[in-house]
Design a protein around this nucleic acid. Structure first.
Length: 207
DNA sequence: GAGAAGATCTCCT
DNA sequence: GGAGATCTTCTCA
């Protein structure tokens, strides 16, 4: 048996948020639950940087909700919105810069049946093609806020993929926000069916 | 303490 | 394609 693989280290998350949002595509997201291990490939992200991004939760300063964004990189920031949905972010950059990358979609690779059950859907592409869907499939709630994804004993880790796969990255504008809509801070893997449908329609319109 | 907004999803037409 | 659901968080008085 080969030595156990370690999660991606904190130095990766300490980089510029836009670089992390782009480079984290294709990485393996691993979630440890009592029902087993759930794994998916990250296929869609958005960058939020509080210092110069009016749509970021941290733009107006530190609050009890967003305080983890002001902490060290590589920490989860989970918040509840629209009365129904949780969204998962990974904190980036230095502690004095409140920034994070929103994980918008993953391509399920392991524990698929468990994720389908969590979501009550039948098709693979319905499991995690959106921020709210993804957190439900992976059983992520506010209890999972402030977890260290670089710690091998954490309930959430992110790993390099076993096999490097070549893909094209598309950079475009974010969805679901009112302010700073023009910032091209959304990234996804071109042609992947697991990115959110809303976005696919948007891109077709803007060709 | 009250009112408003919100990084979404799903159902209905 | 459009609108409602649902509830946490923030702002303002």
């Amino acid at each position: 048996m080969a030595s156990k693989k370690l999660p991606i280290n904190r130095g990766f998350y300490a980089q510029d948020t836009l670089i992390v949002a782009k480079d984290i595509l294709g990485k393996m997201f691993v979630r440890y639950t009592p029902n087993g291990v759930l794994v998916g490939r990250i296929v869609e992200t958005e960058a939020y940087r509080g210092t110069d991004d009016p749509s970021s939760h941290s733009y107006r300063g530190k609050t009890s909700r967003n305080e983890v964004m002001f902490g060290k990189p590589g920490i989860t920031y989970v918040y509840f919105t629209y009365g129904n949905h949780h969204c998962l972010n990974i904190v980036t950059e230095k502690p004095e810069i409140p920034a994070a990358v929103l994980i918008r979609a993953i391509e399920p690779t392991k524990g698929i049946e468990t994720m389908k059950r969590n979501r009550d859907v039948e098709k693979n592409i319905d499991i995690s093609s959106g921020p709210g869907k993804l957190t439900k499939a992976l059983q992520i709630t506010r209890n999972d806020n402030n977890l260290d994804v670089t710690d091998p004993s954490s309930k959430i880790n992110i790993f390099e993929p076993d096999e490097e796969e070549k893909f094209q990255i598309v950079q475009t504008t974010r969805v679901g926000i009112r302010l700073a809509q023009e910032f091209p801070w959304r990234f996804y893997i071109k042609g992947n069916p697991h990115v959110s449908k809303k976005q696919a329609r948007f891109d077709l319109k803007n060709k």
